[in-house]
Protein backbone atom coordinates (compact mmCIF):
# COMPACT_ATOMS: atom_id res chain seq x y z
CA UNK A 1 0.00 0.00 0.00
CA UNK A 2 2.98 2.25 0.45
CA UNK A 3 4.21 1.94 -3.10
CA UNK A 4 1.29 3.42 -4.97
CA UNK A 5 2.10 4.86 -8.35
CA UNK A 6 1.66 8.63 -8.79
CA UNK A 7 -1.07 8.00 -11.32
CA UNK A 8 -3.00 5.97 -8.81
CA UNK A 9 -2.54 8.63 -6.14
CA UNK A 10 -3.99 11.21 -8.51
CA UNK A 11 -6.88 8.92 -9.37
CA UNK A 12 -7.65 8.29 -5.71
CA UNK A 13 -7.63 12.00 -4.90
CA UNK A 14 -9.87 12.88 -7.83
CA UNK A 15 -12.30 10.09 -6.94
CA UNK A 16 -12.43 11.19 -3.33
CA UNK A 17 -12.91 14.79 -4.42
CA UNK A 18 -15.86 13.90 -6.64
CA UNK A 19 -17.42 11.82 -3.85
CA UNK A 20 -17.02 14.62 -1.29
CA UNK A 21 -18.56 17.14 -3.68
CA UNK A 22 -21.52 14.88 -4.47
CA UNK A 23 -22.36 14.23 -0.84
CA UNK A 24 -21.60 17.62 0.65
CA UNK A 25 -22.61 20.03 -2.09
CA UNK A 26 -26.39 19.73 -1.52
CA UNK A 27 -26.04 20.71 2.13
CA UNK A 28 -23.71 23.56 1.23
CA UNK A 29 -26.05 24.82 -1.49
CA UNK A 30 -29.16 24.74 0.67
CA UNK A 31 -27.33 26.66 3.39
CA UNK A 32 -26.42 29.29 0.78
CA UNK A 33 -30.01 29.46 -0.44
CA UNK A 34 -31.28 30.01 3.08
CA UNK A 35 -29.40 33.32 3.16
CA UNK A 36 -30.75 34.50 -0.18
CA UNK A 37 -33.79 36.48 -1.17
CA UNK A 38 -36.16 35.06 -3.72
CA UNK A 39 -34.77 37.36 -6.38
CA UNK A 40 -31.24 36.16 -5.71
CA UNK A 41 -32.36 32.53 -5.89
CA UNK A 42 -34.21 32.94 -9.14
CA UNK A 43 -31.28 34.64 -10.86
CA UNK A 44 -29.67 32.73 -13.70
CA UNK A 45 -26.84 31.82 -13.64
CA UNK A 46 -26.79 31.13 -9.91
CA UNK A 47 -24.06 32.82 -7.89
CA UNK A 48 -21.95 31.65 -5.01
CA UNK A 49 -21.18 35.20 -3.90
CA UNK A 50 -24.05 37.42 -2.83
CA UNK A 51 -25.00 39.72 -0.01
CA UNK A 52 -26.59 37.41 2.55
CA UNK A 53 -29.88 38.18 4.25
CA UNK A 54 -31.29 36.88 7.50
CA UNK A 55 -34.87 37.68 6.51
CA UNK A 56 -35.78 34.03 5.85
CA UNK A 57 -34.76 32.97 9.34
CA UNK A 58 -36.43 36.05 10.85
CA UNK A 59 -39.72 35.17 9.20
CA UNK A 60 -39.54 31.56 10.40
CA UNK A 61 -38.61 32.43 13.95
CA UNK A 62 -41.08 35.30 14.35
CA UNK A 63 -43.75 33.11 12.78
CA UNK A 64 -44.99 35.96 10.69
CA UNK A 65 -44.52 36.43 7.02
CA UNK A 66 -45.23 39.82 5.47
CA UNK A 67 -46.05 39.48 1.80
CA UNK A 68 -47.56 41.77 -0.75
CA UNK A 69 -50.95 40.17 -0.17
CA UNK A 70 -50.74 40.56 3.59
CA UNK A 71 -49.40 38.83 6.68
CA UNK A 72 -49.19 35.03 6.88
CA UNK A 73 -48.90 32.89 10.01
CA UNK A 74 -46.12 30.30 10.03
CA UNK A 75 -46.21 27.37 12.46
CA UNK A 76 -42.66 26.31 11.79
CA UNK A 77 -41.36 27.06 15.28
CA UNK A 78 -44.18 24.98 16.69
CA UNK A 79 -43.17 22.12 14.41
CA UNK A 80 -39.61 22.47 15.64
CA UNK A 81 -40.87 22.31 19.21
CA UNK A 82 -42.96 19.23 18.38
CA UNK A 83 -39.90 17.52 16.93
CA UNK A 84 -37.91 18.32 20.03
CA UNK A 85 -40.66 17.30 22.44
CA UNK A 86 -41.61 14.09 20.65
CA UNK A 87 -38.02 12.94 20.16
CA UNK A 88 -36.92 13.74 23.69
CA UNK A 89 -39.85 12.15 25.48
CA UNK A 90 -39.81 9.12 23.17
CA UNK A 91 -36.14 8.53 23.87
CA UNK A 92 -36.65 8.96 27.61
CA UNK A 93 -39.58 6.53 27.61
CA UNK A 94 -37.59 4.08 25.49
CA UNK A 95 -34.66 4.32 27.91
CA UNK A 96 -36.87 3.66 30.91
CA UNK A 97 -38.48 0.69 29.17
CA UNK A 98 -35.49 -0.56 27.24
CA UNK A 99 -32.51 -0.38 29.59
CA UNK A 100 -33.93 -2.78 32.21
CA UNK A 101 -35.06 -5.11 29.43
CA UNK A 102 -31.64 -4.95 27.79
CA UNK A 103 -30.11 -5.83 31.15
CA UNK A 104 -32.45 -8.77 31.57
CA UNK A 105 -31.64 -10.04 28.07
CA UNK A 106 -27.91 -9.66 28.68
CA UNK A 107 -27.73 -11.21 32.12
CA UNK A 108 -30.41 -13.87 32.27
CA UNK A 109 -30.70 -16.55 29.69
CA UNK A 110 -34.42 -17.06 29.35
CA UNK A 111 -36.55 -18.10 26.46
CA UNK A 112 -39.05 -15.25 26.61
CA UNK A 113 -36.17 -12.77 26.69
CA UNK A 114 -34.73 -13.97 23.41
CA UNK A 115 -38.23 -13.95 21.94
CA UNK A 116 -38.90 -10.35 22.97
CA UNK A 117 -35.48 -9.23 21.80
CA UNK A 118 -36.00 -10.74 18.37
CA UNK A 119 -39.57 -9.48 18.12
CA UNK A 120 -38.18 -6.00 18.73
CA UNK A 121 -35.63 -6.64 16.01
CA UNK A 122 -38.24 -7.78 13.54
CA UNK A 123 -40.31 -4.70 14.36
CA UNK A 124 -37.34 -2.69 13.19
CA UNK A 125 -37.62 -4.45 9.83
CA UNK A 126 -41.38 -4.61 9.35
CA UNK A 127 -43.03 -2.08 7.02
CA UNK A 128 -44.09 0.77 9.33
CA UNK A 129 -47.35 1.34 7.49
CA UNK A 130 -48.39 -2.23 8.29
CA UNK A 131 -48.53 -1.19 11.94
CA UNK A 132 -49.52 2.44 11.38
CA UNK A 133 -52.61 2.04 9.24
CA UNK A 134 -54.49 -0.32 11.57
CA UNK A 135 -53.21 1.76 14.45
CA UNK A 136 -54.70 4.93 12.97
CA UNK A 137 -58.14 3.27 13.00
CA UNK A 138 -57.52 1.81 16.43
CA UNK A 139 -56.37 5.16 17.82
CA UNK A 140 -59.53 6.76 16.48
CA UNK A 141 -61.58 4.35 18.55
CA UNK A 142 -59.62 4.64 21.77
CA UNK A 143 -59.10 8.39 21.49
CA UNK A 144 -55.34 8.32 21.03
CA UNK A 145 -55.29 9.75 17.53
CA UNK A 146 -53.61 13.11 17.27
CA UNK A 147 -52.26 12.99 20.82
CA UNK A 148 -48.66 13.23 21.93
CA UNK A 149 -49.11 10.05 23.94
CA UNK A 150 -50.21 8.12 20.87
CA UNK A 151 -47.26 9.42 18.89
CA UNK A 152 -44.74 8.70 21.65
CA UNK A 153 -46.13 5.18 21.82
CA UNK A 154 -45.54 4.70 18.11
CA UNK A 155 -42.07 6.26 18.26
CA UNK A 156 -41.10 3.29 20.44
CA UNK A 157 -41.11 1.34 17.18
CA UNK A 158 -37.79 2.94 16.27
CA UNK A 159 -36.36 3.89 19.66
CA UNK A 160 -36.91 0.68 21.61
CA UNK A 161 -35.23 -1.86 19.29
CA UNK A 162 -32.25 0.45 18.93
CA UNK A 163 -31.82 0.96 22.65
CA UNK A 164 -32.42 -2.66 23.61
CA UNK A 165 -29.95 -4.06 21.10
CA UNK A 166 -27.17 -1.53 21.62
CA UNK A 167 -27.36 -1.38 25.41
CA UNK A 168 -27.62 -5.16 25.64
CA UNK A 169 -24.20 -5.44 24.01
CA UNK A 170 -22.71 -3.05 26.52
CA UNK A 171 -24.20 -4.95 29.45
CA UNK A 172 -22.83 -8.18 28.02
CA UNK A 173 -19.36 -6.64 27.96
CA UNK A 174 -19.40 -6.06 31.74
CA UNK A 175 -17.87 -8.94 33.67
CA UNK A 176 -20.67 -10.56 35.71
CA UNK A 177 -18.20 -11.04 38.55
CA UNK A 178 -18.11 -7.29 39.10
CA UNK A 179 -21.82 -7.39 39.81
CA UNK A 180 -21.50 -10.56 41.89
CA UNK A 181 -18.81 -8.91 43.97
CA UNK A 182 -21.06 -5.93 44.61
CA UNK A 183 -23.93 -8.18 45.66
CA UNK A 184 -21.68 -10.12 48.03
CA UNK A 185 -20.51 -6.81 49.51
CA UNK A 186 -24.06 -6.53 50.78
CA UNK A 187 -25.87 -4.52 48.12
CA UNK A 188 -29.36 -5.30 46.90
CA UNK A 189 -30.08 -6.19 43.32
CA UNK A 190 -31.41 -2.71 42.57
CA UNK A 191 -28.34 -1.02 44.04
CA UNK A 192 -26.13 -3.23 41.90
CA UNK A 193 -28.11 -2.37 38.79
CA UNK A 194 -28.05 1.38 39.35
CA UNK A 195 -24.54 1.77 40.79
CA UNK A 196 -22.61 -0.85 38.82
CA UNK A 197 -24.38 -1.99 35.66
CA UNK A 198 -25.85 1.33 34.53
CA UNK A 199 -22.74 3.47 35.16
CA UNK A 200 -20.53 0.94 33.40
CA UNK A 201 -22.86 0.76 30.40
CA UNK A 202 -23.26 4.53 30.30
CA UNK A 203 -21.35 5.12 27.05
CA UNK A 204 -23.66 2.63 25.36
CA UNK A 205 -26.77 4.11 26.92
CA UNK A 206 -25.71 7.60 25.87
CA UNK A 207 -24.94 6.46 22.34
CA UNK A 208 -28.21 4.58 22.00
CA UNK A 209 -30.10 7.56 23.39
CA UNK A 210 -28.47 10.03 21.00
CA UNK A 211 -29.01 7.76 18.02
CA UNK A 212 -32.63 7.09 18.80
CA UNK A 213 -33.07 10.83 19.18
CA UNK A 214 -31.66 11.33 15.69
CA UNK A 215 -33.87 8.62 14.21
CA UNK A 216 -36.95 9.86 16.05
CA UNK A 217 -36.26 13.40 14.88
CA UNK A 218 -35.81 12.25 11.29
CA UNK A 219 -38.99 10.20 11.28
CA UNK A 220 -41.62 11.33 8.85
CA UNK A 221 -44.30 8.71 8.40
CA UNK A 222 -45.54 8.36 11.98
CA UNK A 223 -46.73 11.92 12.36
CA UNK A 224 -47.83 12.12 8.75
CA UNK A 225 -50.41 9.43 9.50
CA UNK A 226 -51.16 9.86 13.17
CA UNK A 227 -50.78 13.58 13.85
CA UNK A 228 -52.62 16.68 12.73
CA UNK A 229 -50.84 19.94 11.87
CA UNK A 230 -50.85 20.80 15.54
CA UNK A 231 -48.72 17.80 16.55
CA UNK A 232 -46.53 17.53 13.49
CA UNK A 233 -42.72 17.63 13.64
CA UNK A 234 -40.51 19.54 11.22
CA UNK A 235 -40.18 16.69 8.76
CA UNK A 236 -43.88 16.84 7.99
CA UNK A 237 -44.18 20.56 8.59
CA UNK A 238 -41.39 21.51 6.19
CA UNK A 239 -42.97 19.46 3.45
CA UNK A 240 -46.25 21.27 3.89
CA UNK A 241 -44.36 24.48 3.16
CA UNK A 242 -43.88 23.57 -0.46
CA UNK A 243 -47.55 23.75 -1.19
CA UNK A 244 -48.30 26.66 1.14
CA UNK A 245 -49.06 29.88 -0.66
CA UNK A 246 -46.75 32.86 -0.42
CA UNK A 247 -43.71 30.99 0.83
CA UNK A 248 -40.40 31.87 -0.75
CA UNK A 249 -37.77 29.30 -1.66
CA UNK A 250 -35.31 30.93 0.69
CA UNK A 251 -37.67 30.28 3.57
CA UNK A 252 -37.98 26.63 2.61
CA UNK A 253 -34.20 26.40 2.55
CA UNK A 254 -33.99 28.08 5.95
CA UNK A 255 -36.58 25.65 7.30
CA UNK A 256 -34.51 22.76 5.96
CA UNK A 257 -31.37 24.10 7.60
CA UNK A 258 -33.12 24.56 10.93
CA UNK A 259 -34.62 21.09 10.81
CA UNK A 260 -31.42 19.21 9.93
CA UNK A 261 -29.12 21.27 12.14
CA UNK A 262 -29.88 19.46 15.44
CA UNK A 263 -29.36 15.97 14.04
CA UNK A 264 -26.22 16.89 12.14
CA UNK A 265 -24.77 18.50 15.27
CA UNK A 266 -25.66 15.46 17.38
CA UNK A 267 -24.22 13.13 14.77
CA UNK A 268 -20.91 14.99 14.78
CA UNK A 269 -20.91 14.87 18.57
CA UNK A 270 -21.76 11.16 18.76
CA UNK A 271 -19.93 9.99 15.62
CA UNK A 272 -17.81 7.60 17.68
CA UNK A 273 -20.92 5.50 18.35
CA UNK A 274 -22.71 5.88 15.05
CA UNK A 275 -21.39 2.72 13.41
CA UNK A 276 -22.33 0.55 16.33
CA UNK A 277 -25.76 2.12 16.52
CA UNK A 278 -26.46 1.92 12.81
CA UNK A 279 -25.64 -1.79 12.78
CA UNK A 280 -27.62 -2.43 15.99
CA UNK A 281 -24.44 -3.41 17.78
CA UNK A 282 -23.04 -5.76 15.14
CA UNK A 283 -20.09 -3.61 14.10
CA UNK A 284 -17.90 -1.58 16.42
CA UNK A 285 -16.48 1.64 15.03
Amino acid sequence: MDHTSPLETIFRRVALGVILVFFLFPIFWIVLMSFQTNEQILRIPPRVFFSPTLSNYKALISGELITTVGSLKLTFMHNLWNSFFLSTTSVLVALVLGVPAAYAFARFKFRLGEDIAFTLLSIRFAPPLLILLPLSLLFNEIGLSDTYIGLIWVYQLICLPLIVWIVRGYFEDISPDIEHAYRIDGHSWAQTFFRIAVPLARPGIAAAGLLSFIFAWNNFVFALILGSADKQPVTVGALAFVTAAGISYGQIAAAIVLSILPTLALALYAQRYLVEGLSLGAVKG
Partner: peptide, 27 residues
Protein backbone atom coordinates in the same frame (compact mmCIF):
# COMPACT_ATOMS: atom_id res chain seq x y z
CA UNK B 1 -15.66 9.88 6.76
CA UNK B 2 -17.45 11.93 9.42
CA UNK B 3 -18.50 14.62 6.92
CA UNK B 4 -19.75 11.96 4.52
CA UNK B 5 -22.07 10.73 7.26
CA UNK B 6 -24.06 13.98 7.21
CA UNK B 7 -26.45 12.97 4.41
CA UNK B 8 -27.32 9.84 6.39
CA UNK B 9 -28.20 12.00 9.39
CA UNK B 10 -30.52 14.14 7.31
CA UNK B 11 -34.16 13.15 7.53
CA UNK B 12 -34.94 11.36 4.24
CA UNK B 13 -38.09 13.43 3.72
CA UNK B 14 -36.06 16.61 4.19
CA UNK B 15 -33.41 15.26 1.82
CA UNK B 16 -36.08 14.94 -0.83
CA UNK B 17 -37.07 18.51 -0.18
CA UNK B 18 -33.46 19.62 -0.61
CA UNK B 19 -33.19 17.83 -3.94
CA UNK B 20 -36.51 19.22 -4.96
CA UNK B 21 -35.11 22.71 -4.56
CA UNK B 22 -31.97 21.77 -6.44
CA UNK B 23 -33.80 20.15 -9.33
CA UNK B 24 -36.43 22.86 -9.75
CA UNK B 25 -36.72 23.45 -13.48
CA UNK B 26 -36.79 27.22 -12.93
CA UNK B 27 -33.89 27.95 -10.63
Amino acid sequence: AILLLLPLMTAPAIASLMWKLMTNPGF
